[in-house]
Amino acid sequence: MRGYTFFVAQSCAAAYVAVYFSVLAVRRRRGMVAADAPAAARRTHGRTFAVIGALEATAFAIQLYAAGRLPGSLISVLNQAVLPFSMTASAVLLGRRYNAAQVGGAAIVIAGVLLCIAPSAVGLGAVASSKAAAAAAAAAGVGSAGGGAGGAAVAIHAALFASTMALIGVVVVLKERLLKVGGLDVFIVNSYGSLAQCVATAALLPLSVRLAAGGTPVGAYVRAGIAALTGATSPYMPWLTLAYICANLTFNIAALNLVRCSSAVVALLASLFTVPLTSLVFCLPLPLLVATPFSWWFVGGLAVISSGVLLYNKGGK
């Protein structure tokens, strides 16, 4: 699906809408959500839902395009660029202020992330993995995640991926405001945000075609994308997409519940623990993937990230 990431994004958005609205309907029948709460939320916060959907759709489309051209071990590290953006958005939109310990903790976390990315920066990880993926894909006669373009291409796509974290940082804070200030149920926020994302993703089809296929006619791109999604070109489809959607739904619900119980920034800090661990997993000989060379930088990065999270939490008490 490297050339048809629009269909992955649209499938995810459609699945979000179906699952979240189904759960919301059950919660209304059981009295866990007031019968008029969804309609009231739509009237009061309709513009906020639209902004959330547009930002998520744009970020997701660009992320999938860039991720298809990056080694897996680098993607989880780049996700952490959301931390400074979310702290800035929290200060602007929620009026939250951070003390020196919290700012220092966040800085240490970023330093830990940079330690994880160091092998890629000097050509030991991302570039090597990219070239290995290109060689393996060339032998199989298919496109690779690295595209065979070397370090420059990796750097460009990494920067593109990281830039979308500014959009995600705003989205996370807007959802926190809806949950805490607006008092909305988590599935109301998810349902209407996902509906807006689904509409916005469809509207971004021309951009997706432009990014992934250049001058290919939209009709031809759609037909080829549907064929790839439904398994006409790979025996692993659509099962890989379905597994991804299930994992994504589980993660999003858990993350939003953590936001509701604590804050957007705390939820993001908690997710930082997965960065070096995910990078280490990608060093294993996993099916369908090219293993990234192991580096002790990942282990050192985990230790630094952990100390930063502890400092941030201490400063918040």
Rank of each mutant, 00 (worst) to 15 (best):
T233Q: 07
L242V: 08
A200G: 02
N252Q: 14
L211Y: 08
I253P: 00
G215R: 13
P206H: 02
G231C: 03
T233N: 08
S234N: 10
A203I: 13
S234K: 02
G231H: 04
P235M: 07
F251R: 08
V218N: 05
P238R: 05
R210E: 03
Q197S: 14
A227L: 14
W239A: 11
S234E: 09
L229G: 00
L229T: 07
C198Y: 07
A212W: 05
A203Q: 05
T233V: 09
T233G: 03
T250F: 12
Y221V: 00
T233M: 09
R210M: 14
G231M: 05
A224Y: 06
I245D: 05
W239S: 08
Y221P: 05
A200Q: 04
L207S: 09
R223N: 13
A227V: 14
S208P: 09
L240G: 09
N252I: 09
L205V: 09
G225D: 05
T216E: 12
N252E: 09
P217L: 11
R210Y: 14
G225F: 07
P235W: 11
M237F: 14
A212H: 11
L211A: 02
L205R: 03
A227Y: 05
A247L: 12
T216R: 15
V209R: 03
L205H: 06
W239C: 03
A213V: 02
P217T: 12
I245W: 00
L229H: 05
S208R: 01
T241G: 05
L240R: 12
L204W: 01
A212G: 11
C198R: 01
T230N: 09
G214N: 14
L207N: 06
A243I: 08
P217N: 14
Y244S: 11
V218W: 04
L229P: 00
A212L: 08
V218E: 07
Y236E: 10
C246A: 15
T201G: 06
I226H: 10
V209F: 03
Y236P: 00
Y221T: 02
A228G: 02
S234W: 08
T250P: 00
M237Y: 13
P238S: 10
G219T: 12
T230V: 14
A200T: 07
P217K: 15
Q197A: 13
A243H: 04
A203M: 10
P206R: 02
F251M: 10
S208G: 12
G219C: 05
M237R: 11
R223G: 12
T201L: 08
L205K: 04
A202E: 06
V222C: 07
T201S: 12
N248L: 08
A243P: 00
I226V: 15
I245V: 10
A202G: 06
G214E: 12
G225P: 03
S234H: 08
L242M: 10
P206D: 01
L229V: 10
A203H: 03
N248M: 09
Q197I: 03
P217M: 12
C198E: 12
A224S: 11
T201D: 06
C198S: 10
V222E: 04
A232M: 07
A232K: 07
A220H: 15
A200F: 04
P235A: 14
F251W: 13
A227F: 09
I245H: 00
S208K: 00
T216H: 09
I253G: 03
A212E: 15
F251H: 11
P238I: 05
A247I: 07
G225R: 01
Y221M: 03
N248P: 01
T250K: 02
G214P: 07
G219A: 14
R223E: 15
A220P: 02
